[in-house]
Simulated assay, not measured.
Amino acid sequence: MIQEPASSAFTTGPHSGHAPGPAAEPEATRRDAGVTESARANRGWWDRNADEYQTEHGTFLGDDRFVWGPEGLDEVEAELLGPPEDLKGKEVLEIGAGAAQCARWLAAQGARPVALDLSHRQLQHALRIGGGFPLVCADAGALPFADGSFDLACSAYGALPFVADPVLVLKEVRRVLRPGGRFVFSVTHPIRWAFPDEPGPEGLTLSSSYFDRTPYVEQDESGRAVYVEHHRTLGDRVRDIVAAGFRLVDLVEPEWPAWNSSEWGGWSPLRGNLVPGTAIFVCARD
């Protein structure tokens, strides 16, 4: 959810440019946050902010586009899941689906998608737009599907940036894929964590260590986390993929296209022409 939780939810945290919810301004800090705390905080954040998110970004995302990130790379051109004509009849799981824009595009290609998200409110937006495919509210670390249920899985900024144990999620995705299946997911490019989350010139100066994996946490006055994002280096992501039993087929770093003049948190034409903002991992389940 640009997950989101941006598939259709690209990261929206302070390292991704989300606006605070209606409650008092939370305190931003870097501290440890485990699996349970991260899931609870992010479920609450997305339930509270889904309406604002869809209002602000719905036009860019569309109702039935498959966009991999704020750069605007579209699956119809990228074909990271394969040629569109080969998607017909494929059972596809979208993780961190938000309003299920990607699943809706997949359905239009003749695929049989299932859209899953941690946030009930995000899925209400998916239901509002419609599509006729199943919507499932569940944690990506405990997928409620039998082994080998899907041919393909995808996630555009869904789940992976927000979980404390990405290997657990990757293993779950591999479990529900059939042999020969593919999982493609996009996340904030790890290098972005070294820069301020600003789209202008002030966002071009290194401000923190790329190697600091301490989670970004927003917490209320009692110290309770209300939003969590987890940073992994590029090498960490590759090792996580391998540890989960996948084979890394490709790593795509979308360049900022000339047509895209929009800003989204720290993403912008200025930043995008100098620093990668998104990393897309194409993984095979042998």
Rank of each mutant, 00 (worst) to 15 (best):
E75S: 05
V76S: 04
A258N: 04
C283H: 02
Y216I: 10
A153T: 03
Q101I: 02
L81G: 04
A111T: 02
M1A: 14
A140F: 05
V187P: 02
I241V: 06
S149Y: 04
F60K: 00
L118A: 15
A78W: 05
T12I: 11
L177N: 04
Q219F: 02
W264Q: 13
E37N: 08
P166D: 07
A99I: 06
E52K: 12
P70T: 12
H15I: 11
A156Y: 05
E71M: 00
A6S: 14
P20G: 06
L93N: 00
L270D: 09
Q122E: 14
L152S: 01
L127F: 07
S16T: 13
P161W: 08
N49E: 13
S207N: 14
R224M: 09
A41G: 00
L87Y: 06
V92D: 00
E27K: 15
G96N: 01
A225W: 03
T233N: 08
D236E: 06
T214S: 12
P257E: 02
E263R: 14
L206W: 13
D117F: 10
G180A: 07
G13H: 03
L160H: 00
V35K: 07
N49I: 09
C154Q: 04
G17M: 10
A19V: 15
F150I: 07
S155E: 04
W45F: 15
D220H: 13
A279V: 15
A115N: 06
G34T: 12
R175V: 04
E218A: 13
S8L: 12
H231W: 14
E202Q: 12
V184R: 02
G272M: 07
E52Q: 14
C137I: 10
D165S: 10
A9T: 10
R247G: 04
A19P: 02
D117Q: 02
V169P: 06
S261V: 09
W105P: 01
S7N: 03
W68M: 07
G203A: 03
D286L: 11
E229Q: 13
V226L: 05
A99C: 01
F133G: 03
P134F: 08
R192G: 11
A103T: 11
H189V: 09
G34E: 10
R121V: 15
D117Y: 12
W267I: 04
S149P: 00
P22Q: 06
V238I: 14
G131S: 12
F183S: 01
F133Q: 01
A138Q: 07
L160C: 00
P20A: 09
G235L: 00
S119H: 09
P113M: 13
S208G: 12
P83Y: 02
G180D: 08
I191N: 04
D220P: 12
I95F: 05
V217A: 00
L127W: 10
E71F: 12
P201T: 12
D147Q: 12
N260G: 06
F150C: 01
G17I: 03
S209M: 03
W259M: 01
S268A: 11
L160P: 01
F183N: 00
R121L: 03
G131R: 09
F10K: 09
L177A: 01
S149M: 03
L251S: 05
G17H: 09
V242Y: 04
S268I: 08
G141N: 08
R271M: 07
P144F: 09
E85F: 08
E229W: 00
P166E: 10
L123H: 08
L234G: 10
Q124F: 08
D220E: 13
